[in-house]
């Protein structure tokens, strides 16, 4: 019989916390239910439990240390059934599970899901499963189209061509790139769902692109030609004199496919104090006085 200190891998001087920690670590590694494929785990776990039972009991541990009892004397870990050996696990199988003896259903589950349709499923000859993947691409990648390579679970790689203008949630079907067919039947398809990451600047509305463009007071009042990002690079945009916040300008053909890009102007005040601007406004009287809030809230 091995020494319980050796079994738990602790010093003779170890305190209760150290013993507990050592036991916890070993239990996580050797618990038979976590090792259904290792019959020897039951024996090892029992050894660990016995050692823990001896060393975690201060009285028993002291008697053992004084040589009054030996490690074997304590070896009466009750024979306990483990989950891995219990019958009737079927009730805890997840949806789609099947009873142990249902071999036909096993083949159906392993090879035949997704088969069906007009061809139907013939015994022993089943189309491969469809494999599902999700691919996240950037807003501009989706807008302009791109090719991405994904690694499949079976070491293969798959080049996925994402067409320009692909929408969030679109599912691409790659024929024959899914699970292998059984008995000479065709392979399943790979279904790749495209997730498009949102962009802080570009927003999509159908095939149109909408952006908010900050402009200075001077540009808004006097008009200007400014550079504007589009999904296909920068273009020059003429801002007509007297354009207020919310003015919507169109960049023809700069959207997706046949769509356009719409630019909403947003007047931005200069950072910091502008004493001259403030002084000017204080003295300035508009030639055509108006109330921008006239009629608000009245139906």
């Amino acid at each position: 019989m091995k020494n319980p200190y050796d079994i738990l891998g602790v010093q003779k001087t170890a305190d209760a916390a150290a013993i507990r920690a050592a036991y916890r670590k070993l239990a996580k590694t050797h618990h038979p239910d976590l090792n259904p494929g290792k019959p020897e785990a039951a024996e090892r776990f029992k050894e660990i439990s016995v050692a823990n039972e001896l060393l975690s009991d201060a009285d028993k541990r002291a008697r053992f240390d004084r040589g009054e009892i030996d490690a074997t004397g304590q070896e009466r870990a009750p024979e306990r059934p483990f989950y891995r050996d219990a019958q009737g696990r079927g009730r805890y199988q997840q949806a789609g599970g099947f009873t142990e003896d249902d071999v036909e259903s096993f083949f159906h589950q392993a090879f035949g899901k997704g088969a069906g349709g007009s061809t139907g499923r013939t015994r022993g000859r089943t189309r491969g499963n469809d494999a599902r993947y999700t691919l996240t691409v950037g807003f501009l990648e989706a807008a302009n189209g791109t090719t991405r390579r994904i690694a499949l679970p079976d070491q293969r790689t798959l080049d996925v061509k994402i067409p320009a203008g692909t929408e969030d949630g679109h599912v691409l079907r790659l024929k024959g790139q899914g699970g292998v067919g059984f008995g000479g039947a065709p392979n399943g398809d790979a279904l790749v769902e495209i997730a498009v990451a949102p962009d802080p600047f570009f927003k999509r509305e159908g095939d149109d692109i909408v952006i908010d463009l900050p402009v200075t007071i001077r540009e808004a009042v006097l008009g200007a030609t400014v550079e504007v990002p589009t999904i296909s690079g920068k273009v020059r945009l003429a801002i007509p004199p007297g354009s207020g916040s919310g003015t919507r300008l169109r960049l023809r053909g700069r959207g997706l496919r046949e769509g356009h890009q719409f630019v909403r102007l947003q007047i931005v005040l200069p950072p910091g104090e502008e004493a001259e601007l403030a002084a000017f406004l204080r003295d300035w009287e508009p030639s055509q006085p108006f109330d921008p809030r006239a009629g608000l809230g009245e139906s």
Binding site: P36, Y83, R89, Q94, G97, V103, F106, Q109, A110
Partner: peptide, 21 residues
């Protein structure tokens, strides 16, 4: 952990059925 274990046990049962077949 329970979910992963249930899957492991499910797979083992499937494997066993396949082995017997």
């Amino acid at each position: 952990i329970l979910s992963l274990l249930d899957q492991v046990y499910g797979l083992r049962d499937s494997m066993d059925a396949l082995r017997r077949a």
